[in-house]
Design a binder for these strands. Structure first.
Lengths: 115, 115
DNA sequence: TTTAGTACTATGTGTTGCAAGGTACTAAAA
DNA sequence: TTTTAGTACCTTGCAACACATAGTACTAAA
């Protein structure tokens, strides 16, 4: 018998929506990775470096993000990421997909609650 | 430059929530796999056999589901899955996790839309 | 000159969704 | 009787992803 692992499922649930959240945050203004992690933490979405950095690189390589280096007075230079025009369009698509998913899941849950 | 792949992200978004949806459907009453796929399709969540069967086996092995065989007059026998008591409790937890996720993501999106 | 804090990067692992292919049962058509 | 269509279940192999872990490097204060 395998173990019941709620935490694992919670982690799985977050897959995919991270991309949406990161693009949303960057639509508010440029940000560097550590800043993004803090902002996600504010909304109860805990993401660690090992997750965020590869994801940002992926988004950059697909042309959704650009970046620039900026000096810091309190440590190493920061890599500020910025939403490209393609990224903005893509974000709108993802927002629609997200709404559709929420509706689909909620309608399934609602049907269950009726009985 | 890699390709921008919306479909892939959509698929990723659904990860984890499938478990929630399947348990929700089974909370409405016992069902066999093909039936579950049809019900998910009704709510715009397309799931294929290669996804569902391993998932059902996993849920059974963790004790969240049980099953029984039932004869059919129109084809091979059907494997009816049923939510166990542990499964019902687990479903409640997942529903809470889902609500938390929706709130977290929506608050991130909302902040973006303000600017 | 050592320590603490900040920041970015790389590697390896486990889980998962899915495509593709396969088996087997029933009933109706050829 | 054989073939075809419909239904249903199952397995294998792959690619993507999140994460743990470990490492490098810069600044400032102790």
């Amino acid at each position: 018998m395998e173990q019941v692992n709620t935490d694992n499922t919670k982690a799985q649930m977050r897959k995919g929506v991270l991309e949406l959240c990161i693009l949303s945050i960057l639509s508010q203004g440029d940000a560097y990775p550590t800043e993004i992690i803090d902002k996600l933490k504010d909304t109860k979405l805990v993401v660690v470096e090992g997750t965020l950095y590869p994801l940002l690189t992926r988004l950059k390589n697909t042309g959704l993000l650009g970046y620039r280096w900026e000096e810091s007075t309190s440590g190493p230079p920061r890599k500020y990421y910025k939403l490209t025009e393609i990224g903005e369009q893509y974000l709108k698509e993802l927002q629609i997909s997200w709404e559709e998913l929420v509706n689909a899941v909620n309608s399934t849950i609602e049907k269950g609650k009726k009985l």
